[in-house]
């Protein structure tokens, strides 16, 4: 990507994404953490747009911000006496060291490898092509995903159903 607009957009979005993600780990209150998580998700959606992945960007906003972030907020407000502190346990230091090592290794590999960079332009209208692939070549995994989602929904409902709710209304 050569043009100035894309470069400026990348740096702003990368700063928003990484800054908000650091905030998610650093702030003390879990609710604030989820709000920053939403900002980070939105930044990633913007990065998808600079990568010309328009359909994935919309899916990211719909599912991550619209569904998963809201689910996390539900879980926080449904556990009121558990405390909303976002503090670290006794694994704080080893986890920090491990995360730094993983990040360092991946960044080193990213710069050390000579990737087979293609010269093609960005995609145009990915939604049509993705729809063709999902209902053609990838139809079987697509159907299996629907079964997975159904079983996850049923499992989640069964898990949180109150005791003595076996009989429905007559």
């Amino acid at each position: 990507m050569e043009d100035t607009g894309a470069v400026v957009a990348f740096w702003i979005l990368a700063a928003i994404t990484v800054g908000a993600a650091l905030g998610v780990a650093a702030v003390r209150n879990l609710i604030h953490s989820v709000v920053l998580l939403i900002v980070s998700f939105a930044g990633v959606a913007g990065l998808y747009i600079t990568l010309s992945a328009d359909f994935i960007a919309v899916v990211q906003i719909l599912i991550y911000i619209g569904a998963i972030a809201i689910l996390i907020i539900f879980a926080i407000v449904l556990t009121p006496r558990a405390g909303r502190l976002n503090q670290e346990g006794f694994m704080f230091l080893p986890a920090l060291v491990l995360a730094a090592l993983v990040a360092g290794t991946m960044i080193f590999v990213a710069f050390d490898t000579s990737w087979a960079i293609s010269e093609r332009e960005g995609f145009e209208d990915t939604a049509t092509a993705i729809g063709d692939l999902l209902l053609g070549k990838y139809a079987l995994p697509f159907e299996i995903a629907s079964v997975l989602l159904l079983s996850a929904i049923i499992g989640a409902i069964l898990l949180v159903r109150p005791e003595g709710a076996e009989e429905g209304p007559e």
Binding site: T17, V18, A21, L22, V24, A25, L30, S40, V44, A82, G83, R84, L85, N86, Q87, E88, G89, M91, F92, P94, A95, L96, L98, A99, A100, V102, A103, M106, I107, A110
Partner: peptide, 16 residues
Amino acid sequence: AVLFAIGLYMTLAKRN
């Protein structure tokens, strides 16, 4: 990579 590392740190270190 940075997003993954922050997530890994939170997964391992957070108590909640």
